[in-house]
Amino acid sequence: MSQKNSSEAKRTARERMQEERAAQEAKAQRIRKFSIIGTVLAVIVVAVVIGLVVQNSRTSSYNASQAPAGTIGANKLVIPVGSTAAPSTLTVYEDLRCPACGSYEKSFHTTVNQLMAQGKVQVQYHVVSFIDRNDNGTGSKNAANAVACAQNVGKFHGYHDVLYANQPDETDDAWADKSKLITLAKQVPGLDTPAFESCVNSNSFGAWVTAVQKDFDKSGHTSTPTILLNGTSAYPTYNGEQISTANLIKWVDAANKGKTPASLAPSASAALVSPNASPNASG
């Protein structure tokens, strides 16, 4: 009896010890599990928070004082060409690397230049740079910065026309090489100076270029070229009518009906028609 009792007592004691050990192990296991869950969540939260802070600090750096001279609009993101007194406004969102913009410029830049020279329209350029995202590269941004450098010395219009006349294929990121942009600047009388070259090479208006693109992102327009005549889309159609040089002139005249075109000095008109004519020859 007593022997049996004591062996039973031993067994229960052993069982109790085992149970206790198992319970302890289970508890330790739980703690390990929860600490892993905690670590996982902590890693994620820390990564995301760091990401938000870093990305925010990288992008909030633009203010209007960094814009090239002569730009207009609330944040000075718009480059105007032509007289401010012109009764109509042609708003143009273009990417210097975008082939559709290239073909728009090829078809219409002569007409648009004439309309400006006649004081009928002012063109407001938004130089966007999103092709770099789609096709990879830096050509759009480099070119946008370069035209900002030209704008800063009052030579945007001519350089803009030269770049479009020499646009590389969309998939060829030729303007990743800034020296090509500088070579093309030689076609614009008086543009290629050491100051201009350093402006292009050091990406002086990079923050402005980013801000212009950001503004386009938020505009709701999703493609380039986006052309607005007095705020109404004019590309590829304007009120249901297909764009052509004749139609563009007709639309502008219709919009300007009853209004006086801006009066421009002959030299200013001539400069708008052919912005890259040598000033001595035309003078």
């Binding site: 890693v43 994620i44 820390v46 990564a47 995301v48 760091i50 990401g51 938000l52 990305q55 925010n56």
Partner: peptide, 11 residues
């Protein structure tokens, strides 16, 4: 836009 890439990197 800023946070998702870092969530992906954390994963």
């Amino acid at each position: 836009g800023y946070g998702l890439p870092f969530l992906e990197l954390a994963l």
